[in-house]
Design a protein around this nucleic acid. Structure first.
Lengths: 203, 203, 203, 203
DNA sequence: TATGAATGAGTCTTCATTCAT
DNA sequence: AATGAATGAAGACTCATTCAT
């Protein structure tokens, strides 16, 4: 472990560090942490292998920093748009929009998603990151619902369940198309279930 | 790749092969596929390194065979008990029982669960295994419901959603105790939601 | 090194040893000494791996014994036919016959030839075997020539040169067909050269 | 197979690569390809094992590159001197010179010669190299003869035969001293035979 | 700062040979 | 005499990390 990690101050150096993170994270997401080596990361970042160890303790560090920097984009891109309003009589549409959002995000970074989920299940730090984000998004959803007039009746737990339902659905749709599941039906049921979930929380 | 895999004939040899599978799978589950080497597997199985390669193509093979042999026990132990009957007026209890079952199974093989889920997300063969089992358990649940008088109203999809809800809950409970989630409340909501899911399928 | 090599006395045992030699030598000739392992030899001989070491000191032994047993067939099959007579006025035909013999033998055991020649160049024992046989065949040719009325005017050396010329020709024809050499012309030249070689040795 | 072979740019690195080739080729020639391992090559080159695989795909690569670099020196050192003139009335001397050249070259790199010839007989790439060189030297000899006034009467084929005769002789002299062959006589016969070979090609 | 050359411990895998039965 | 299971040393190759410049 190198104790002399340099925090780059010069603009060029900062850019170089960013480059390593993005290049490294990209490769790791695409190929898996164990299938990519530091030489490849350096090459992909147009940087020498040596320099990597002046900005990072080790290979693992690159992963973690990449996660911090790009994790949100991959998993919770919606976190960017805040203060959403929806027509209470058209809660359906709001749910559908979220589902679309999720499916889209799954599709865009399909492989990255899987690679990181893999690490969520095997690496404590990645897991911590992921679960923290999960709480954030849950809170975010809860706030939206409250802002739109929902009663706070265990809204936090319900939001979590709602997101769980949606995530399962998206995963199902994105990855196991081959199964004998009817996805249109499934989506309708999910929407209905979510509405039931909140049935007593609208005036 | 060695294509001269020997299928052991002597009783002692058969036991030895089993031993390698169990020892290897155990170590992999406990420490992760990439953190265990063949020497460790051999040692843990009280066997020489050479013999490993007479029964298996490679390290990966051990994982897959271990999965075939012990995967069900870890993920779907309930698959053993068939033909369950429950009091239709007490659907609640049935749901709770399944949840308990799941939580228990998560707790028993906590780490194994996570390691394998990790590979579900990064290895095609492991994923195939897992999703196949998932379909089985879904079918199994659907059959139980039908046997207990439920109407087949997209019962397959609903079963899948139900299991998803339960799995999310268990995962939540087993792994992120630290969160500010109220699990008792959550369980109640889940049960209620599941009941709503099938509200039109009971006479 | 196992000092207890058993010399098989029972008929069945003798056959078994022969089988190992022939199977082993065949595989080695076809694939090369370093590309064949004892397990394959045993399997090809329909014998257990263990038994091999009761008849042979080691893998190398099999090669040497195979060479002793089958080497002649491969390199000097003509050694079998003795006492050849030819029409002195038709020395040409005799030469051509030998060439045909050689080419045929090269073609039949093409790969074996090469594999063994490879070892002639890298293993002392194989070399010894080969050069000993070479002397035999030279002597054999010399004797034929004498029997057919040639004067012994350095006939030994000349026979050796003659065989060398033929061997080079055959090798050329059998292995580098692709070159821009005209083989018909070459053969004629060779024959002429050989006749010149002995031009003063016929009355 | 590592496909990230680095082509060394720094002077020191270039020298190191050369060092690995020469050290590796030397050891392989002296001991045989199968009796030398990469660790030994690295050690002999005063280099770590790792670096070997940054410059070469594998052990085999070292052999081939060594061959390309030093093969000519070992087999056809005369290829260096071009445009040789000789006294047509003293063709004898020219032949003798070539023989001396060959014998000398055989003697100098005795073992290397044999090890490589071994591989010529067992490895396609080595064989290709060798036969290509053989054609070159044949052409080279043919050109010399033409330059010295020989008629081109199948001169290519005759050159090849001449070289074959010389090679056999040298091999005989260098390796089987033990035989009952009279080498002085043999050399005289060879010279006479070669002269006969070209008897109609001088005016 | 930056380069890319160098290190060497670690990994998988093979195989001649021996052992238990 | 025979089997085939078992051994373990040895080999090729990789890669995170450090070093010389």
């Amino acid at each position: 472990m190198n104790d002399n990690i340099r925090e780059p101050k010069q603009q060029r150096a900062i850019e170089k560090k960013e480059k390593i993170i993005s290049a490294g994270f990209e490769l790791i997401c695409k190929n898996g942490y164990y299938n990519i080596n530091t030489a490849q990361i350096a090459e992909h970042a147009n940087v020498s292998t040596g320099i990597v160890y002046q900005y990072f303790n080790d290979k693992y560090d690159i992963l973690i920093e990449g996660l911090k920097k790009y994790g949100n984009d991959i998993f919770f891109p919606m976190l960017k748009d805040n203060n959403i309003k929806f027509d209470k009589n058209n809660f359906d549409k709001f749910i559908k929009d979220i589902i679309k959002y999720y499916i889209n995000s799954h599709k865009i970074s399909n492989i990255a998603h899987e690679e990181i989920m893999s690490m969520v299940h095997s690496d404590k730090n990645v897991a911590d990151f992921y679960y923290k984000r999960e709480l954030e998004i849950t809170t975010y959803l809860k706030d939206i619902l409250i802002n739109n007039g929902f009663k706070d009746n265990n809204l936090f737990e319900k939001s979590h369940i709602m997101l769980g339902l949606i995530d399962n659905l998206c995963h199902e749709i994105t990855y196991h198309k081959h199964s004998k599941m009817n996805y249109d039906v499934m989506m309708d049921i999910i929407i209905e279930t979510i509405k039931d979930l909140f049935k007593n929380d609208l005036d």
